[in-house]
């Protein structure tokens, strides 16, 4: 294949760019103790990379099983669902009890809960909406708004002190990633990524659409369920680490498709993960060291991602 070498070269460039971003993030502008700085930054870097990878892979999977390149789990409200579950827990057991719980277990437990809730909710939405992109966009946007409204209702009825516990979780925060959750997040992420990697050839087939997939012996329904499970795990990891983000996944998938024009998930999955790493660590480096935290990265990423969403939406409407 003629395109094979081009893809390989671009993957290599992407990997180098990621390496450069990571090194820059770790080693530039250290004042004081190197040991402390590297520890501190290493953990933050790991959290950023994990969250980015999770968001990126989840977005690619979601776009493949829904057959479009406009929607991501975040736009459909997966992140909002996670925050809702978290708020629900605080509401049900009270902040005192909640804070006594081991945070690692809370994260693992909410990941499991998330899988069940997402399958129940989004499984039905996807079955009804497949093939009708605009209906899916509308359903997703409405669903996300609904989930956020229920969350803010819950947060309003609970005690203001308890509200403070969930409030921190409800906003995107790349600069204050939850570093103490990195170990458990890495574990969950690894399981989900392995599952996604094993699905890579099947995803290529599922991307062709339901008729071709059935003809080639891949049940689209089963593939969709499995992918939804993986997506739920990944979104709970990323949301727990850096909070909900709306358009980040869309931004990195759009960039990846632009740089690597291929249908093969064996290339797309790792490439998108690397792209997410470049955007997050590179962006965070610029924001921390060049802009001196004057603007949060999440604002910039969401702004750019939002523009991409609008552009793709308008392009999709024209077709």
């Amino acid at each position: 294949m003629a395109g094979g070498r081009m893809l390989r070269n671009r993957m290599l460039l992407l990997a180098l760019a990621l390496l450069a971003c990571c090194l820059a993030y770790l080693f530039t502008g250290v004042k004081g103790s190197w040991e402390f700085a590297l520890m501190f930054r290493g953990q933050k870097l790991a959290a950023l990379l994990l969250a980015g990878t999770a968001q990126a892979v989840a977005a690619v999977l979601f776009q493949t099983i829904t057959g479009n390149r406009l929607l991501t789990p975040s736009i459909m409200g997966f992140d909002a669902l996670y925050i809702l579950l978290l708020s629900g827990m605080v509401f049900a057991m009270g902040a005192q009890q909640f804070l006594l719980l081991d945070r690692q277990w809370v994260m693992a437990g909410s990941a499991v809960l998330m899988c069940g809730a997402a399958l129940a909710l989004f499984g039905a939405v996807l079955r009804a909406g497949r093939g009708d992109l605009m209906r899916m966009v509308l359903t997703g946007v409405v669903l996300a708004v609904m989930l956020r409204s229920i969350t803010s209702f819950l947060q309003r009825v609970i005690d203001p002190n308890e509200y403070a516990v969930v409030q921190a979780a409800s906003y995107a925060r790349f600069s204050r990633a939850e570093t103490d959750l990195v170990a458990i997040a890495a574990l969950l992420c690894l399981v989900a990524l392995l599952a996604a990697w094993r699905m890579r050839f099947r995803l290529d087939v599922l991307a062709l659409g339901p008729v071709a997939a059935v003809s080639l012996g891949e049940d689209p329904q089963r593939g969709q369920w499995q992918a939804l499970l993986v997506i739920s795990l990944l979104v709970s990891v990323s949301t727990a680490l850096v909070g909900p983000v709306a358009f980040f996944g869309l931004l990195v998938t759009a960039l990846t498709y632009l740089v690597l024009p291929t249908h093969r998930h064996a290339v797309l999955l790792p490439a998108c993960a690397m792209m997410a790493g470049v955007v997050l660590t590179g962006g965070q480096w610029v924001m921390e060291r060049v802009m001196h935290l004057s603007t949060p990265l999440s604002v910039v990423v969401e702004f750019l991602g939002g523009l991409v969403f609008l552009a793709l939406l308008l392009k999709g409407l024209k077709q």
């Binding site: 062709l208 659409g209 008729v211």
Partner: peptide, 27 residues
């Protein structure tokens, strides 16, 4: 044993003709 001729595939997947025909061997 049994194939169905699809009328279309997802337009977004940027497949070449060779890629598409290659999928026939997937089973």
């Amino acid at each position: 044993k049994l194939a169905i001729l699809p009328q279309q595939v997802n337009a977004s997947s940027r497949l070449t003709v060779r890629d598409l025909v290659g999928f026939g061997r997937y089973p």
